[in-house]
Simulated scan of single mutants.
Amino acid sequence: MATTTDTKASFSAAERAAMKERAKELKASTDRAEGEAAVAEKIAAMPEPDRSLAQRIHEIVTEVAPTLVPRTYYGMPAYAKDGKVLCFFKPASKFKMRYSTFGFNDVAQLDDGTMWPSEFAVTALTADDEARVAELVRRAVG
Rank of each mutant, 00 (worst) to 15 (best):
Y99T: 12
A38Q: 04
F120W: 09
V85Y: 02
A127F: 03
V137T: 00
R132T: 15
L26C: 10
E34D: 13
R132D: 15
T5V: 09
A40F: 08
H58G: 00
E25D: 12
R56W: 08
P49T: 10
A78F: 04
K96H: 11
Y74H: 15
D128Q: 14
G113C: 01
E119I: 15
M46Q: 09
T62W: 06
A44I: 07
V141A: 02
A140Q: 05
M46C: 12
K24Q: 10
L26N: 15
E48G: 15
A37W: 01
D106E: 14
M76N: 10
R56Q: 11
R56N: 11
E25M: 01
A38R: 00
A134Q: 08
D112R: 06
F104W: 06
R56V: 07
E41C: 05
G75S: 09
D31W: 05
M76R: 10
A78S: 12
E21F: 06
M1T: 11
A13R: 11
V122H: 02
E63C: 04
P66I: 06
D6Q: 01
Y73A: 00
T3N: 10
Y79C: 03
K96R: 12
A18K: 05
E21L: 13
R98M: 11
E25L: 01
R22H: 14
F95E: 15
K84M: 14
R16Q: 08
A131H: 06
K27H: 10
M1G: 15
P91Y: 09
E25K: 01
A37Y: 07
P117N: 13
V64R: 07
P49F: 10
D31P: 06
V64L: 04
T30E: 03
P47W: 03
L26K: 09
A9M: 08
P66F: 00
Q55E: 15
E15Q: 14
Q55H: 11
P117S: 13
Y73Q: 03
K84H: 13
C87H: 00
A124Y: 06
V122Y: 08
K8H: 13
N105L: 12
P91A: 15
D50A: 07
A65S: 10
A92Y: 00
A13M: 02
K42F: 03
D111Q: 13
